[in-house]
């Protein structure tokens, strides 16, 4: 029974694909508006065989993860600094409160102007889109650390950096990871838009080519491929969270 469970959870997925195939075959929509799933699957296989698919996935993955990683590095640093220093808080609080809710994607043409049409501008826009989310969550996580906990650590002789490394960062980890989990899909969304607008390959580039050549099979193949990439990234991060928090739960008392 327990060995069958993973297979059972695939059933709904298969049902959705079966419904797609059946609905497309029924001919209510034309093959152009909704190609059959079997045809789309065949295209995905061809793309894979030609090496096209892996190359595109690689490009999109690299850009999204690079932008996300850059934002994670900067965002966690700024968030921790805001929690620890009055000056940093004074400077970044208004910047973040304005930056957080504004649509960063409107910056894309400016980045294209500054950084050209290559990887740099795509990575930069993804990083900008993620930065404020990660900063805000890190800051909230770090200021949420129980005061008594900090006092206890200091009174036991921990230095400021030790408190940061051994108390604040671990205690803020759940909220930081929440920020990561919100930001990563945003990185992917933004990267795809960048690829669609600038070209330069990637899954977004493939998608745009399909649209230009009115190749609806290619379009649906691209959407399925992107959905798979999105699912893998989101699941991967959720797995990472479980691993990290499992380790933390044993290593420290939970404060949040």
């Amino acid at each position: 029974m327990s060995r069958l469970r993973p297979l059972l959870s695939l059933l709904p997925v298969l049902a959705v694909f079966a419904f797609w195939e059946g609905f497309a075959r029924a001919g209510i929509l034309s093959d152009f508006l909704l190609p059959r799933f079997s045809v789309v699957l065949q295209r995905i296989w061809e793309d894979f065989r030609d090496g096209l698919l892996l190359e595109a996935i690689g490009q999109t993955f690299y850009r999204a993860v690079a932008g996300f990683g850059l934002a994670a590095l900067l965002g966690v640093s700024v968030g921790v600094a805001m929690a620890g220093s009055r000056a940093a808080r004074w400077f970044f609080e208004p910047v973040v409160s304005v930056g957080f809710p504004t649509p960063k994607i409107a910056f894309l043409p400016i980045f294209m102007l500054w950084l050209g049409l290559g990887d740099a501008s795509k990575v930069a826009i993804a990083a900008l889109a993620c930065f404020f989310i990660i900063t805000t969550n890190t800051y909230l996580g770090a200021v949420g650390v129980d005061r008594h906990f900090l006092w206890a650590a200091r009174s036991l002789g921990a230095s400021r950096t030790a408190v940061l490394r051994e108390v604040i960062l671990p205690a803020a980890t759940p909220q930081v990871l929440t920020g990561f989990q919100i930001a990563l899909p945003i990185a992917l969304i933004t990267t795809l838009v960048g690829e669609m607008i600038m070209g330069g390959g990637g899954l977004g580039g493939l998608l745009l080519d399909s649209q230009r050549f009115a190749d609806s099979v290619g379009l649906f193949a691209g959407i399925v491929e992107i959905a798979v990439l999105g699912t893998v990234l989101i699941r991967g991060l959720a797995l990472l969270r479980r691993l990290l928090l499992h380790w933390h739960a044993e290593a420290r008392p939970v404060t949040s």
């Binding site: 669609m196 899954l203 977004g204 745009l208 992107i226 959905a227």
Partner: peptide, 11 residues
């Protein structure tokens, strides 16, 4: 849910 919705723009 996990599909980045910008992928739907061309569609």
């Amino acid at each position: 849910y996990p599909l980045p919705k910008s992928a739907l723009i061309p569609l």
